[in-house]
Amino acid sequence: MNLIRAELERLGARRFVQLMVVLLVLAFGVTAATTLASSHTPTAVELAEAQRQVASDRRAMELEHDRCLARDRGDVPRTADDFSYLPDDCSQLDPALREYQPVTADYLSGVFTFTRQAMPLLYFLVAFLMLFGFLVGASYIGADLNSGGVVNLLLWRPRRLTVLGAKLGTLLGAVLGLSLLASAAYLVTFWVIAQIAGYPGPTNAAFWASLGAVWGRGLVLVLLVTAGGFAIATIGRHTSAALGAVAAYLVLWELGGRIVLQILEVARHDQLMLVSYIGAWLAGEMSFWDNTPCPPYGSCTGNYTLTWGPALTVLLLLTSGLTAAAFAMFRRRDLT
């Protein structure tokens, strides 16, 4: 417990951590301030007009669907001047099944609508926290290995796995705590902005469940990335090892490898990219299109989906593999 307390204090006292927290608060403040400055509470007239337009859109969608069904029944013969497209399958026009549903916020100009903006804001926060976790995780152990902090600590507590485990545990606990606090404060702030200078939008259980799921998955991702940064820096004995490894991976594989795979016409090569799994995990699923494996003729669309389950498996395997390697190497390494 003393070791964790000491590590927590050491982590909190690091200037890089403090700088990253300041950047987080700054990014948060700037986003909130610009949102607040550029939004206004919609007047009753604006709301009524927006709701009227939504109703009009919905009515048009229903009419189109009805027209399609009538065509199928043969009630309305197609005339020469009817150029509007009707699909073979009328369910594609069924308003209840459509992915896009017109909402009031679509017609509220200059109004911050929480239900519309919460998800992109959350993605931004998760991205920042991932960067925060990776850099702090890598520099925390990297700087300690270089500054002699680890050696000093081992002279006091000559249990390598305990020391490294305490460092990783403290780091993950601190990052989780900060992420929970930051994301809660972030969402509450924008909720309040929507209440006082914007439009909250129609929030229902499905909305909150969807937001909560992305939030939870985002926090897991932040922890995985933090552990990954810590592990790579431990293996490479330096903060820059983690930065270099990620930069090399992105340039060589995500960019270069992707080009080579495209030239070689490797089917569904997005499945070989870590970024696809990160996206699939965070969003719940991710759709890709690649008709390379499709025969020349037929109904093959080339669409395929990565869901969060396999994405989590890949991310967990990678992170646990890196972490296990880091612990195994640290256990046997000569600290010279």
Partner: peptide, 23 residues
């Protein structure tokens, strides 16, 4: 052991305090 290194941004007091806590 050899030339001991410490985290430059910490004060001597904090350095020792953290070691005392850990130990």
């Amino acid at each position: 052991v050899e030339s001991p290194q410490f985290f430059g941004n910490f004060t001597a007091y904090r350095t020792l305090r953290l070691l005392a806590l850990a130990g």
